[in-house]
């Protein structure tokens, strides 16, 4: 009988992560010549956001691709650096970290929790949306902004006087439509596929924060695999990662084009100067969270990317 790897994730098959997971399945099954069978469970069918990490540690599932914001609850607060606003200016700076020694070092820390990190998969850079034009950081004051549960995102919103509100992803559309929250932050592909642009008047191209995932496996399971299979899976993961990142980038570009074409919300582009004002206003977040995240690792990232408030 083939070795079965249950790969569970919480998004739809059509999303970049969903596509990448299916692409990995295809490569891995080909390259192991059927000795491994990968069962992909999308849409939180098997495990929800809140339980998948523990399920992986327990061995109820073998592979996951959780968002990087989910690592702090495991006790690995250093991963919160990925949530910091404006820490990466663009994909080049980002990949210096995720595909370089710092990223590898961070993944290594997972082993203390019984997990192994195989790769980082991009989702993209976030834009701000609301029903009033958010041109300056001062425009955020008093705005109720939906975030996903994360201490850093919470403090990022507070740094500009906004009121962060944690809401389940499935509730966001309705909350935006009725005005329970005024706005939110998302990579364009999420904004567009969830139709949030239909219920938001303005989208500001802040590109202020990064959203990404890491592919994880259960350590005991992984170490127990025959070496040749592990090698085949690793090479499949490498190709799937390139695929994931290119699909994510393409999806985000297409999504922004879709938002523009729909005419349902107005797109606000920021000049370099305006962006600098946002960066400056949100820099507080870095200071407030430096102790949590770890000053050493932050310094390494700053050196790699040249971050300056």
């Amino acid at each position: 009988a083939p070795i079965i790897i249950k790969f569970s994730h919480v998004v739809a098959n059509e999303t970049p992560k969903g596509q990448a997971a299916n692409y990995f399945k295809k490569l891995a099954e080909e390259r192991t010549k059927g000795r491994v069978k990968i069962e992909v469970y999308p849409n939180s069918q098997l495990f929800k956001d809140k339980e998948e990490m523990e399920a992986l540690q327990m061995g109820s599932v073998q592979m996951l691709a959780p968002s990087l914001a989910k690592f702090a609850p495991l006790g690995l607060k250093e991963f919160e650096l990925f949530d910091l606003p404006f820490i990466f200016d663009d994909y080049t700076e980002l990949h210096k970290v995720t595909q370089g020694p710092i990223g590898a070092k961070l993944l290594k820390r997972l082993e203390t929790k019984g997990l192994i990190g195989l790769a980082y998969w991009d989702n993209g850079f976030k834009v701000m949306s609301a029903n009033k034009p958010l041109k300056k950081p001062e425009d955020m004051r008093g705005q109720k902004m939906r975030i996903q549960s994360s201490k850093v995102l919470d403090s990022q919103m507070r740094s500009v006087g906004a009121i962060p509100q944690v809401l389940a992803f499935s509730e966001v559309y309705q909350a935006l439509q009725t005005g329970v929250v005024d706005g939110t932050e998302n990579p364009p592909s999420n904004l567009y596929t969830q139709k949030m642009h239909e219920v938001q008047k303005y989208v500001t191209m802040t590109n202020h924060g990064y959203l990404g995932y890491a592919v994880l496996v259960n350590k005991k399971f992984w170490m127990g695999l025959p070496a040749d299979i592990r090698a085949a899976l690793e090479s499949s993961m490498k190709d799937a990662t390139n695929y994931a990142n290119s699909v994510a980038k393409k999806d985000n570009d297409e999504a922004m084009a879709g938002v523009k074409k729909s005419g349902k919300s107005q797109i606000i582009n920021l000049s370099a100067q305006e962006k600098a004002a946002w960066r400056k206003a949100m820099d507080k977040t870095h200071k407030e969270n430096a102790a949590r995240i770890g000053a050493d690792v932050l310094k390494e990232v700053y050196t790699a990317t040249g971050y300056k408030p």
């Binding site: 008093g142 705005q143 919470d154 507070r158 006087g161 009121i163 962060p164 944690v166 005024d182």
Partner: peptide, 25 residues
């Protein structure tokens, strides 16, 4: 949450410093 959205000087500043993010959990 509702009161923090009201632009009342002083009160809003104070409310914005109060963190209720843990309530749902």
């Amino acid at each position: 949450r509702y009161a923090s959205g009201l632009p009342i000087p002083g009160l809003q500043d104070w409310l914005l410093t109060v963190n209720m993010s843990w309530a749902q959990e």
